[in-house]
Design a protein around this nucleic acid. Structure first.
Lengths: 153, 153
DNA sequence: GCATAATTGGACCGAAACAGTACTGTTTCC
DNA sequence: GGAAACAGTACTGTTTCGGTCCAATTATGC
């Protein structure tokens, strides 16, 4: 349902929390601080470490630390790190679309993907922490939007 | 992986094809026309009928017809019809986020959802049919984009 | 008016992906 | 040398998705 995985949600929470501390932080501490179960937060941090979003320090007195300031990490980066590349359909870039010849709309999904990526790249973790939204997004509303369905029809 | 279901992809293809015909069209005809398996296209049309996107005519000589012109149906509408509401996280509008008190970012995901919805609502099925893109989206690239990751970090 | 055929409507089931957990190994500090 | 913490792998339960089948409905032809 166009819903990103819960792991990504956890990742954002953990990263924002991590950005509020200067020293290295361990998984258990982060777990208590965020309310996310220990094994899960450990798994998330592990993935983020492999993607270079956080740096890890092994051994006693080890832990995790942000590799970049919050302002330089976009939502799109986190999503791609956890969930993989952002592409709405499998019918892109040589996918196995068996109806390619008849479907008619060749790579029209690419522009949709680009729109999504664009919107997600414009929001950083710092924007998530602060409750103010930068106006880089055209027509973006304030956090508490009317809530009605955005159906155009 | 922020990927919408194949059903939605099928729905768009079927709707665009349906928009090219005036008279009512049956599932088998649409299946042959699009290359989508018969049962699947039937299921998609069924869902779209319940959502009011297409009108159905039961019985012999029945079939489906578009309820609105292609220009008035946005991608967001189709996605919401098939996949359900567009909300990236479960932690919105009274969701069961058990870490609400500690996570810190109350409804910050809402602005992300709004951005997505915005981008998706700006693209109509007519845009998918024609290979030209209207410039309603700020910074949207042409269909064949470079393809590099949109990571900001 | 009745039988028949065509088509949608709703329910069901198997398969795949995901979230979460546990365990073992490696590294570093005390 | 012992303890603490990350790294990697494997496993299991759950949910969701994709696909299929059968029942309800309506127009047509006799």
């Amino acid at each position: 349902m166009l819903k990103l995985s819960k792991l990504t949600d956890y990742a954002v929470v953990a990263l924002v929390r991590l950005g509020q501390k200067e020293e290295v932080t361990t998984s258990p501490v982060l777990s208590r601080s965020t309310g996310i179960p220990e094994p899960t937060v450990a798994k998330v941090l592990k993935i983020l470490a492999t993607q270079g979003i956080v740096t890890s320090q092994r051994g006693a007195r080890g832990g995790y630390r942000l590799a970049h300031p919050l302002e330089e990490i976009s939502i799109a980066t986190v999503i791609q790190a956890i969930d993989g590349p952002i592409s709405l359909t499998t019918c892109v870039d040589g996918g196995d679309c068996d109806a390619r010849s008849t479907c008619g709309l060749g790579g029209q999904w690419d522009m949709v993907n680009a729109a999504i990526r664009n919107a997600l790249s414009a929001i950083t973790l710092a924007d998530m922490k602060n409750h103010t939204v930068t106006d880089r997004l055209g027509g973006l509303r304030t956090p508490s939007m009317p809530g009605g369905p955005a159906a155009t029809a």
